[in-house]
């Protein structure tokens, strides 16, 4: 009896597939250096235990009016990265993004003396500057504050240029588009923590909307600028994801 028609092409196809899988396996498994956020329930969801260095991470405000919260989250990530070692971080700002206020950066635990700024003329210039900074490879962190969002091609170029550098993109609320970002965060303002300390600690409602090779989630995050660490306040930590998340 003859074998079914599809058996003959099936076998080479399966072999090819296995071969291809084997080829891409190292690339997929190779989790390079990461930036842990300091809160285990959060880091467990991220591939490799933190934000992958060298890949673009996209941050967007949840809604119009949450821009300052999203900026604060970005600056907190920069502060955490800069606390790991020496070096400076570069912020490239498209028109519409004002320079942050130095004394306000201090309040977030970020030393303004370790920040470099570049005011770009448009988004294309932002991406060119980021690419140049990534290729130079001397900065531990770079961030681009764009007016339009991260296009697919720019995301790919940045991904190729960056290695070992924390790369953050802050975009306006309504400019989402498919791109090569490793994670996409939606940040909304939340009432600050006031437990008798002199300084209220900022809190943000962070929704991990997309996470390549990881799981999405929704947390109330608290930033401790003195320790450069994110905390998940008690009772709210590890809440079930509100939308788009895969159950554990």
């Amino acid at each position: 009896m003859e074998p079914p028609d599809d058996a003959i092409p099936d076998r080479p196809a399966r072999e090819t597939l296995a071969h291809l899988r084997a080829r891409i396996a190292p690339a997929e498994a190779a989790s390079g250096p990461v930036l842990p956020l300091g809160a285990p329930p959060l880091d467990q969801r991220l591939p490799g235990g933190g934000l992958a260095l060298g890949a673009p991470h996209e941050i967007a405000p949840e809604d119009v009016g949450d821009e300052a919260a999203a900026l604060g989250f970005l600056l907190a990530l920069l502060a955490r990265r800069l606390a790991e070692g020496p070096g400076e971080a570069l912020l490239v700002l498209a028109p519409g993004h004002p320079l942050p206020y130095g004394h306000g950066l201090l309040a977030l635990g970020l030393d303004p003396g370790r920040l470099l700024f570049l005011e770009a003329g448009d988004d294309v210039e932002v991406f060119r500057a980021l690419e140049a900074a990534l290729q130079a490879g001397s900065l531990p962190a770079v961030a681009g504050l764009v007016a339009e969002g991260l296009p697919l091609v720019a995301g790919r170029r940045l991904q190729r240029a960056g290695a070992g550098t924390l790369l953050l993109i802050l975009r306006p609320a309504g400019a989402g588009r498919p791109n090569g970002a490793a994670t996409r965060w939606r940040i909304a303002a939340a009432p600050a923590a006031r437990d008798g300390a002199a300084n209220p600690r900022p809190r943000w409602r962070a929704r991990l909307e997309r996470c390549r090779n990881g799981r999405t989630g929704d947390w109330l995050m608290e930033w401790d600028g003195g320790a450069h660490r994110f905390d998940l306040p008690h009772g709210l930590a590890g809440r079930a994801p509100a939308a788009g998340g895969t159950p554990a």
Binding site: P100, L115, A129, A132
Partner: peptide
């Protein structure tokens, strides 16, 4: 490396690197 970067950005974009 920052000096090299400042120089490269200055030539590529014609914009200065700033600090606060």
């Amino acid at each position: 490396g920052t000096a090299a970067l400042a120089e490269a950005l200055g030539q590529r974009l014609g914009r200065p690197l700033l600090r606060l």
